[in-house]
């Protein structure tokens, strides 16, 4: 039997402070706990990547809509098979354009396709650091990325590019603490 010393010397006449744990129920409990956890275990973890449909809300009566300056937006073009085009636009004005060579490193494992664009991710991050508007942790708004893709592109490539856009992270202040890193961009799709 296992014993647990809970202190005290155990002088004559005083209550015994040593107590024993019965090993058989303890091992039974551990076994049952392990069985329960193994049966209920989830080994494949699903996650999500977010996108914003940019549905405009009603105009605020206290702000003059005409004086609102349009923000810079990053347009990510993935129509070309050999390059991505990153275009910063402010309203209808093109601020800057950068080409990123496209390498589709598609891997297939058990029928599941996986594609990564590390060069695109690195370039988007550096672009955001130089041109992004909402970089401060206390800023509640996020920079907007708009994805342009042609109609036949398989979904796995679209997710690869969205994942690369979300590689750029910024601090976000929650309850006075700015230790949370969140994606720097909100992603939406271009209609055309």
């Amino acid at each position: 039997m296992g014993g647990v010393d809970v202190g005290g010397g155990g002088k004559g006449g005083r209550k015994q402070l040593d107590s024993e744990i019965n090993m058989i129920p303890m091992i039974d409990l551990l076994m049952v706990t392990i069985s329960f956890l193994l049966i209920t275990a989830v080994w494949t973890h699903m996650s999500r990547i977010n996108a914003d449909a940019q549905v405009p809300g009603p105009p605020r009566p206290d702000t003059e809509q005409d004086k609102v300056e349009p923000e810079k937006q990053l347009h990510v073009e993935m129509r070309s098979p050999d390059k991505f085009v990153l275009i910063w636009k402010q309203g209808g004005t093109v601020v800057s354009t950068v080409d990123v060579p496209r390498k589709d490193n598609l891997t297939v494992t058990n029928g599941f396709k996986d594609i990564r664009y590390p060069e695109l991710a690195a370039k988007i991050e550096s672009e955001w650091k130089t041109t992004g508007t909402h970089r401060d942790g206390s800023d509640k708004k996020f920079d907007q990325a708009i994805l342009h893709t042609d109609n036949e592109t398989p979904y796995v490539y679209v997710v690869g590019v969205i994942d690369a856009i979300y590689h750029a992270k910024r601090p976000y202040t929650v309850g006075g603490k700015s230790n949370t890193l969140v994606p720097a961009f909100n992603v939406t799709f271009a209609v055309n």
Binding site: R48, I49, N50, A51, Q54, N151, E152, P154, I162, D163
Partner: peptide, 25 residues
């Protein structure tokens, strides 16, 4: 295809679901 993804995305937005998440592994 991306056109299907975009159509579903827009339909969800029109139905009052502007925050669309894509489930991934």
């Amino acid at each position: 295809q991306a056109i299907v993804v975009k159509s579903v995305f827009q339909t969800a937005a029109f139905a009052g679901y502007p925050n669309v998440s894509f489930m991934v592994n």
